[in-house]
């Protein structure tokens, strides 16, 4: 068994036997995914529900628009009651050729939407009934726009965040505990190169990141959450690796500065928490004020997030990897270099 393999094995065993680490690496971020996924799950569907009385082509066409959901009522009074109570923004009553729309004055936006859709449908049916060929034709085309259903941005965001946790904490805590427990000094006395020790640790972190990716995507794909991956999701793999090395470098820096595990955990949290919020983990970064978006560019997580969103759910190709990868590599090199310079074998 080579030193490389047995060191990796030793670290994997240590990792799997530490319930606390397992919790923070897998369950903790998954909890966020589940909670946010369920909480925000419906806000993406913007069908407006209105009360409807009667039947006929107007109501069928209204339903076909896909923008309106009808709640059938037997009589006008109960439909009207719904609007009066504020439960529904409007009620449409069809009796023969007469279409009556009752709407609540309080919600102007909803009222406008419903009014527009209903009058559009009525006009269209009128035209058809009058046998007049329309002079203008409207062609529509749907495009993938920047706004996504919550699960679509939550999955890449929380996955990147989780990888930043495992990368930073993994590197920092291993380094501090190995230094404190004199394992570093003992390794220094063995004929094994520092490159071997370092690469085996990085490899364990990359393996962890891949495991996190599989676990999180699998959960998000469940029907309750309804994540839809694009065809080129595998392009996320290089980002996973590069993100891990970048966060590993940050962890090395933290580990080089801190003497105790407690100090290292604290420092890692102080770095990760603001970074996660500003990098679009829990909400799309486009919703933040412009200056904050600019600030967030200093975080590797921001770039990892952008890249993950592009390849996992926005359906972009290899070209979307260029900028995030370049930033992550540069970050790894610069931070890793500084960490190597201030590295200490012992206290």
């Amino acid at each position: 068994m080579t030193a490389f393999r047995s060191l990796s094995a030793a670290m994997i065993k240590g990792f799997l036997r530490d319930k606390m680490t397992l919790f923070f690496v897998f369950l903790f971020p998954l909890m966020f995914l589940v909670v946010f996924g369920l909480l925000l799950g419906d806000s993406g569907s913007d069908k407006t529900k209105i009360a409807a009385v009667g039947d006929g082509p107007v109501l069928t066409t209204l339903e076909q628009t896909g923008a309106i959901e009808l709640e059938k009522h037997g009589d006008v009074a109960s439909a009207r009651q719904k609007v009066d109570d504020g439960d529904l923004p409007a009620a449409v009553v069809v009796s023969g050729d007469r279409v009556e729309l009752i709407y609540a004055a309080s919600d102007q936006v909803a009222a406008g939407t419903v009014l527009g859709i209903v009058s559009g449908v009525v006009d269209k049916i009128n035209l058809g009934a009058a046998n007049v060929a329309p002079r203008f034709t409207l062609e529509t085309k749907s495009v993938e726009d920047a706004s996504l259903k919550p699960i679509q941005y939550l999955t890449p965001g929380i996955l990147s965040w989780a990888i930043s946790i495992s990368g930073v904490f993994g590197a920092a805590l291993t380094m501090v505990s190995w230094r404190k427990k004199q394992v570093l000094r003992r390794i220094r006395l063995a004929p094994v190169s520092t490159t071997t020790v370092l690469t085996s640790r990085v490899l364990v972190s990359i393996g962890t990141a891949v495991a996190q990716g599989v676990a999180f995507v699998a959960v998000a794909l469940l029907p309750v959450f309804g994540l839809k991956l694009t065809g080129q999701w595998y392009l996320a793999l290089p980002l996973l690796v590069l993100g891990t090395t970048a966060f590993f470098a940050v962890g090395m820096l933290v580990g080089a500065f801190c003497k105790t595990e407690e100090a290292a955990s604290g420092a890692a949290n102080i770095i990760i928490m603001p970074m996660a919020f500003l990098s679009g983990t829990f909400f799309p970064v486009e919703n933040a004020p412009p200056w904050l978006q600019t600030v967030s560019n200093v975080f590797p997580l921001r770039h990892m997030n952008d890249g993950m969103l592009d390849v996992l759910v926005r359906g972009k190709g290899v070209e979307a990897l260029l900028v995030p990868s370049a930033v992550l590599i540069a970050f790894t090199l610069v931070v890793g270099f500084i960490a190597a310079r201030i590295f200490r074998w012992e206290d």
């Binding site: 080579t2 047995s6 030793a10 003992r186 390794i187 063995a190």
Partner: peptide, 23 residues
Amino acid sequence: LQASSFFEKLTAREQLQTFGSLY
């Protein structure tokens, strides 16, 4: 070393195997 130095969470046998593999 005067203060013992071990890998975390490994059994006695695994400690020896790991240190041994370094050599």
